[in-house]
C-alpha cells in the first residue's frame, strides 16, 4: 500500500521560488506562463493494513505539512481522496 502526499503553499503565501521559475520560463521564450507555484510530493510506502487514511492525515498535520503556510492532499493506493 502506498500513500502519495501533495504539499502545496496556501494561496496568499508568497512563493519566491515559483516566481523565479516563472521568470526563467518567460526568459526562455515560453510565453503565457501566468504563475508557477512549487510544492512537494511525498511518497510513503505502508505495510498493508497497518495505517488507514485517518493516520495518514495525522502524519500530514503533525509533520509533513505546516498548516500555517501549506495545504495538503493525499491519495491512498492511487485512489484520490
Amino acid at each position: 500500500m502506498k500513500a502519495t502526499v501533495y504539499v502545496t503553499l496556501k494561496n496568499g503565501i508568497a512563493d519566491p521560488q515559483g516566481l523565479a521559475v516563472r521568470n526563467a520560463l518567460d526568459s526562455m521564450g515560453f510565453d503565457g506562463v501566468k504563475r508557477v507555484r512549487i510544492g512537494k510530493i511525498i511518497e510513503i510506502e505502508l505495510e498493508d493494513g497497518c495505517l488507514d487514511e485517518t493516520k495518514v492525515e495525522e502524519m500530514c498535520r503533525s509533520l509533513l505539512a505546516n498548516t500555517v503556510m501549506e495545504d495538503f492532499t493525499f491519495e491512498m493506493s492511487g485512489e484520490k481522496r
Binding site: 508568497a14 519566491p16 523565479a20 503556510m69
Partner: peptide, 15 residues
Amino acid sequence: EAGLLPGVLLRNRDL
C-alpha cells in the same frame, strides 16, 4: 514549528 511561537519562516524574498 513546535507551536511555541506564532507564524512561520518562509524562504527569503530574494531567494
